[in-house]
Computed example of a mutant assay.
Amino acid sequence: MTLKKATLLIIIILLIDQISKFYIKTHFALHDRIEVFSWFQILFVENDGMAWGTKLSDFISGISDRTAKLALTIFRIVAVIGIGYWLVTSARRKSPNILIVAIALIFAGALGNIIDSVFYGILFDDSYSQVATFIPKQGYDTLFHGKVVDMLHFPIWQGFLPQWIPIIGGDYFTFFEPVFNVADMAISSGIGMLIVFNKKAFHQEELEETSKSV
């Protein structure tokens, strides 16, 4: 795959991701939901931290949530620059298509969530008990302190677990509980491709390294 095609893929994913987030932000109040099917809902939540709703401050004592949020956003920006460099290098080396597609998916997803974290705090006002306004007089937070918009929820099964299951037996359980977005799907798909097709993705690089050492 050429770099031009990879860039087109990234643009398409970013457009779908940001359009869906913009629609949710400007049509839903926080925690509003629409049941599409019994196993699929559109549920508007905002993620202020890392994956699964955790925060950097949960792991590092003595650091405030706002400082942790800023540090996490800066780390994401540095990481996406590194992923972009990896993508350009792989495309120029004519690496396997599976590798280039996977990197492009991860890059697009990471960049999509970075846009939320960096800009959404000043582009929208808050969504508590109201539908947010785009470009208000005052946003809900400052630059680099935006929240990531999530909306895809798949509660495929809900119910009480059997009592015989250790520790969590008898608890109410939902599968699949996390709420995510298109960017998250792109990142997960890219990582999944690298894991499942690891040998195919990196076979050419291994051959090149072997030929150089001979």
Rank of each mutant, 00 (worst) to 15 (best):
3 L>S: 12
9 L>P: 06
10 I>C: 08
11 I>T: 14
17 D>K: 06
18 Q>C: 06
21 K>Q: 00
24 I>M: 10
28 F>Q: 02
29 A>R: 11
36 V>M: 10
44 F>L: 08
47 N>P: 03
48 D>W: 05
49 G>I: 08
51 A>C: 09
53 G>D: 04
55 K>D: 06
59 F>I: 11
60 I>E: 05
68 A>L: 05
77 I>Y: 01
87 L>P: 01
90 S>A: 15
90 S>H: 00
92 R>I: 06
93 R>C: 07
94 K>C: 11
96 P>V: 05
100 I>V: 13
105 L>R: 02
111 L>D: 03
112 G>V: 08
120 Y>F: 14
121 G>D: 09
127 S>F: 04
128 Y>H: 14
131 V>S: 02
132 A>P: 03
132 A>S: 15
134 F>Y: 11
137 K>G: 15
138 Q>V: 13
140 Y>Q: 08
148 V>N: 06
152 L>Q: 05
153 H>L: 06
154 F>L: 12
155 P>A: 02
159 G>M: 04
162 P>D: 06
167 I>E: 12
176 F>Y: 12
176 F>Q: 07
177 E>W: 13
179 V>G: 06
184 D>F: 06
187 I>N: 01
191 I>R: 04
194 L>S: 07
195 I>M: 13
198 N>K: 13
199 K>T: 13
203 H>V: 11
205 E>C: 02
206 E>R: 14
208 E>I: 14
